[in-house]
Nucleic acid binder design. Structure first.
Length: 260
DNA sequence: AATCCACACAACCGCCTTGTT
DNA sequence: CAACAAGGCGGTTGTGTGGAT
């Protein structure tokens, strides 16, 4: 590292905003020659008028070959909900379990999709009520979709990304203790039984769906899962469903839980 | 056709941690 | 051990786009 003023190319004006194709090409070529890392050096010597941080972000979130693009699958959404319930906003940690997805993408997903649901329900997205609602309604629906996709294709008997299949008991994904623990209320999630050691071997059993009051699960759920919901993404509640959830929670948990 | 609005996502910023001198 | 630089992370903002009015 030729640090000490090794580069006198520091007087130029730094560029900001969207990256151009030319900048992307320069970055890709530089990394192909010199590898990742040492981002400030890269920024100085590659000819890019960007900060090292900007280069790093562009590479990791967009240019890196294994970055996966496109909509998140139900499995990926399920994992995000599950891991977020355990770790909170530890995006990079969560991203480790979704190969090809970046922390930025997961963070955006949470903000634009999940938090939006909370806003519509007028629930604090960090509240235990909302977490329970996710577990009671959203996650089972994702499991539904995973199961449907599984049975229709059969090409991939286990849709869960390989990385979660470790046997480390400290791994929260494999830990059963995280299920239903967040609720400080007597909502229906409390009725869920202890889970089997591996929740993913039979997701339906694992989530104790048979213990749920099936009448309480909006019928639209299956329509949605079958593609008839008209939603642009999987797992989303319609406003009717959202109000159903809200009402049920008000009945079960008493008033005053939802924001007015 | 024009305007408005909501949404998705790329990018930036500031803080914290870690490594090096 | 302190000072500094670099990298990493989470929060926030900016911008392009498509749909609704």
């Amino acid at each position: 590292m030729s640090s000490k003023k090794g580069a006198k190319c520091e007087e130029f004006e730094l560029r900001r905003g969207p990256w151009t194709l030319e900048e992307d090409t320069m970055l890709i070529h530089y990394i192909a020659r010199h590898g990742e890392g040492r981002w400030n050096l890269l920024a100085r010597c590659s000819g890019l008028k960007r900060t090292g941080k900007s280069c790093r972000l562009r590479w990791l979130n967009y240019l890196k070959p294994d970055v996966k693009r496109g909509n998140l699958s139900p499995e990926e959404q399920f994992l995000i909900l599950e891991l977020h319930s355990k770790w909170g906003n530890r995006w990079s940690r969560i991203a480790q379990f979704l190969p090809g997805r970046t922390d930025n993408e997961i963070k955006n997903y949470w903000r634009t999709r999940v938090q939006k649901q909370a806003r519509q329900l007028k629930i604090d997205a960090n509240s235990s009520i909302f977490r329970d609602a996710l577990r009671c309604y959203w996650m089972p629906r994702l499991l539904d979709q995973m199961s449907l996709a599984d049975s229709s294709s059969n090409s991939n008997p286990n849709p869960i990304p390989q990385q979660v299949h470790n046997t480390d008991s400290s791994d929260p994904v494999m830990s059963t203790s995280c299920y239903g623990q967040s609720s400080s209320t007597n909502c229906s999630m409390d009725r869920l039984p202890e889970l089997a050691p591996s929740p993913y071997e039979d997701p339906f059993l694992a989530y104790g769906l048979d213990a749920l009051d099936s009448a309480a699960v909006p019928a639209v759920a299956t329509d949605c899962a079958a593609g008839g919901g008209g939603s642009d993404w999987e797992g989303l509640w319609s406003m009717d469903e959202a109000w159903h959830v809200r009402k049920q929670h008000e009945e079960e948990c008493g008033g005053g839980i939802f924001l007015q």
